[in-house]
Write a protein that binds this DNA or RNA. Sequence first.
DNA 1: GCCCATAGTATCGGAAATGATACCGTCATG
DNA 2: CATGACGGTATCATTTCCGATACTATGGGC
Lengths: 122, 122
Amino acid sequence: MPRIRHTSLDCSPGCAVEATLELIDGKWKGVILYHLLEGTLRFNAIRKRLPNVTQRMLTMQLRELERDGFLLRTVYPQVPPRVEYSLTELGRSLEPVIMALKRWGDRHTTFGRSTAVAEAAE
Amino acid sequence: MPRIRHTSLDCSPGCAVEATLELIDGKWKGVILYHLLEGTLRFNAIRKRLPNVTQRMLTMQLRELERDGFLLRTVYPQVPPRVEYSLTELGRSLEPVIMALKRWGDRHTTFGRSTAVAEAAE
DNA sequence: GCCCATAGTATCGGAAATGATACCGTCATG
DNA sequence: CATGACGGTATCATTTCCGATACTATGGGC
C-alpha cells in the first residue's frame, strides 16, 4: 500500500515543506537519491552502498521513487538480469534539497565528522 | 518512546543525508520549523497554523524538537499558562534545509502552485 | 457555583512502515 | 548435476507512528 499522498490542501505555505518531505521520506530514499546523483547504478551496486537495507526494502523504495517520477528503471533482458537505475530530470531537480540535507548533516551530526574533513579541503 | 537515534555508523557519506532526514522527519516537524523561522510562537499559535494537528501530536513533535536542540521552550508561570517556542541557533541553522524543501515543493507539487505565484513576484 | 482559556497528560487502538526469512527463474561454470 | 550470480516475490511478525477521546490544573469573570 503506497503511503498517503498529499491530497488535503488544508495547510498554509509551510505545507510545501511537508509535501517535499513526504516524497523523500522513507528510511532509505534520501541516501538512494544521493548515490544516484553520481550516476546510474545497478540494483546490487546500490545495495552495496547501503549495507543495512534488505532486498525487500530496497525494491520497495526504488519502486516508490520510480512511481514518483524521480528515477528510471531500465531492465536489460539478459541472464543473469541487469537492471539499472538512474535519475530523471525531476530526480535531479532534488539535488539542492539532498545537498542541503547532506551539508547540514556533515556539519552538525556525528556522522558528518568523517566526511567533513574531506569537505573542509574543498 | 523516542525515535531511534542514529547510533550505527555503518554507512557511507550519504548517511549524513539520512541522519538529517531522521531529525526533521515526523509528520509535522518540517512545518513547525518553517513557521518558527518567522519568530517565536505560543503553543496555540502554532496550532492555528497547523489545522490538522492534534494537541497530543503537536506536544510530541515540539518535545522532540526541543530534545534535539532545535527549539527552546519557555514557560511563563501564569494562569492561564503561557508557553513560548523559539528556535535555537541550531534550529536556525536548518534554515537552508527547510527553505530548500519549501522551494522544491513550491515548484514541483500541487501545493506549491498557490504560493508559487507570490514567490514569482519577488 | 459554573464556565472559559491555556497548555498540556493519559489511555486505547488501528494503520502503516519496516524487518526476517524463505523462495523463484535462468543460464554459465565447474 | 550442483552451485552461484542477479534481481527480484511472498509471507509473516514486529515496531513505530499517529489519531480519537477523555481528563487535568488554575485563576478570573459571570
